[in-house]
Amino acid sequence: MAKDRSNAEDYTAPVRRLAVAIVVLCLISVFVVWRIDSPRVERFRTEITDRIVPSFDWAMSPVTATAHLISDFRSYQRIYDQNQELKRELQQMKAWKEAALQLEQENARLLDLNKVRLDPKFTHVTGVVMADSGSPFRQSVLLNVGRRDGIMDGWATMDGLGLVGRISGVGETTSRVVLLTDASSRLPITIQPSGVRAILAGDNTARPPLDLIENRDALRPGDRVFSSGDGDVFPAGILVGEVIQDQGGRLRVRLVADYERLEFVRVLRSHQIEDINNPGALIVPEIAPGAVLGPSPADARADTDGASNG
């Protein structure tokens, strides 16, 4: 078909094309800058989120509350079954409670003998989940606590049962928690009772797989997984979950934190974490080769294990 373009269009067409080119160039350059200097752009993203999302909050909280109410109401329909199940579980728990009480007394005696002081680092700030990542490709939540509450990048978060993720991006009134299930999350862990070290590598599934396992043969499904604190970016000894084996024989972790419904999240204060300002320095430390990397015993051991220069 012949196009009946008017004269006006002949003038505007090149201008249009130029405008498109400029817009695309701007967007691509933002992406390139993000790829090169991601902390800076992520800070910009955090500031924007900090401005916009809290202003949605008046509408968000009621809608979320209503949705939760509906799903709660659905669960009332199964209330009899749940009641029976709870009774059975309570029976088992009573037995465990006895065991726990005895162990607690024993533990208190032993701690007293050793003059152990519990880690004072573990005070916490509790935040409410305001929003999630907004897409199924990323796993993160936005908390209603931020810089004004003293939150800092890199702090661990847990939901009372187990580790949830780490703070990544702090705005004035909000902060983002990258969950352990996110594809970019990597967490150094220790597996008890064997003491094997590994990396918990999030892959956007509910059960993240274990990676870089020291000694696979020492692991059994059901082993407990704790954060190891390697690399000084995370406090050690926080419960993460237990080891399970999937159908493919791959070892994964069932997280103890209740990811189905994150409402309140504890942010653990820790003051010794490494300050991550320069992304390159994480991979290649700006220290002369041969020098001891850090004060932590884990690093020192890794050095002497790994190389002859120690």
């Binding site: 999630d132 796993q139 939540v141 936005l142 599934t205 994150l262």
Partner: peptide, 10 residues
């Protein structure tokens, strides 16, 4: 999209 209704991976 931002409503925190499902925080587990889908």
């Amino acid at each position: 999209h931002l409503l925190p209704l499902e925080t587990a991976p889908r």
